Simulated scan of single mutants.
Amino acid sequence: MTRAPDILCIGSALWDVIGRSPAAMRAGSDVPGRIATVPGGVALNIAMALARQGLRPALLSVVGRDIEGDALIGLCDRLGIETAHLYRSDDLPTDRYMAIEGAGGLIAAIADAHSLEAAGAHILTPLIGGPLGDAETPYEGLVALDGNLTEALLAEIAVHPAMARADLRVAPASPGKAERLLPFLRAGRGTLYVNLEEAGLLCRDSFEAAEPAALALLARGAARAIVTEGGRPCCDATVEGAVTRKPPQVLVTRVTGAGDTFMAAHLAAERAGASREDALDRALETAARYVSGDLVP
């Protein structure tokens, strides 16, 4: 019998093209630096981080039947990420993401996730029509879900009977897609992983710190909210109370993928039985090592 995956990672799986320079940049800057092409996408970033911790994640996404897609699947297989449930499209190319990072962090980014949006509910077929689950036998494990899916599909997931028993962990992917998570506020489902800006967009407000932002998300219907703010304290809020922890101070050398690394480390810690306090500490320490360059992606 095939062993069930430890966690499902649903959302974007693509290639990241990242340009990094130690120089301060503004619009129109032309500076020397390094350009790398690496596997990325929120769902895949989380899956890779979980695999590094010895877990067996399964990826539900769309990958084109092109050279880029074949290379991405080959890499996933080598890392121990289950790809049997991926939707392979003859017509849709493998998605891409492009970012520029400078001395001040992220300068600009463009996410081309059009294939994921076009594939829609096709990527969920293994979860809502078997072999991972269906309406009669809902999936009962952990699910890491990202906001690169359309709001309509996210709204369907929030109330779908095939996911009624799943432990949903949801991230918006970027501030520009934060409001796609509103269906989870309305349904009172899932744990939301957002930064301070994304929390403000979901609450239609602005906040000075993570704890009031997390509590405001609860007031708007969230079952649980985890709010981060870079090097400042983050907060995990539930009806049982708020837990706040401060991240280690490190020199930041990269930012793309930091939130996904945090989320994966937090998931792994809680799956291993860590308390809310310890899970936050482990996630913050792992994310700090990642942005400092000490953790090899």
Rank of each mutant, 00 (worst) to 15 (best):
A43E: 07
A43D: 07
L44K: 03
L44E: 04
L44H: 09
N45T: 12
A47Q: 11
A47K: 08
M48P: 01
L50T: 01
A51L: 14
A51G: 13
A51P: 12
R52I: 07
L55C: 10
L59T: 06
V63D: 07
V63Q: 05
G64H: 07
E68I: 02
E68G: 09
G69C: 07
D70H: 12
A71D: 13
L72I: 10
I73P: 00
G74H: 11
G74I: 13
L75G: 09
R78D: 14
L79C: 14
L79G: 04
L79V: 15
G80W: 01
I81G: 03
E82C: 04
E82Q: 04
E82K: 00
T83M: 01
T83V: 02
A84S: 15
A84Q: 13
A84L: 13
H85N: 03
H85M: 05
H85E: 03
L86C: 05
L86K: 01
S89L: 02
S89Q: 02
S89W: 00
D90H: 07
D90C: 02
D91H: 13
D91K: 08
D91W: 05
D91C: 07
L92A: 03
P93D: 06
T94L: 08
R96W: 00
R96D: 01
Y97T: 03
M98C: 10
M98S: 06
A99T: 06
A99G: 10
A99P: 09
I100C: 04
E101I: 08
G102K: 00
G102A: 04
G102P: 02
I107T: 06
A108K: 02
A108T: 14
I110W: 00
D112I: 06
S115A: 15
S115Y: 05
L116V: 03
E117F: 00
A118P: 03
A121H: 10
H122K: 14
I123Y: 02
T125M: 10
T125Y: 05
P126G: 12
P126S: 10
P126C: 11
I128D: 02
G129V: 05
G129P: 03
G130R: 12
G130L: 12
G130H: 06
L132P: 04
L132D: 03
L132T: 04
L132N: 04
D134T: 13
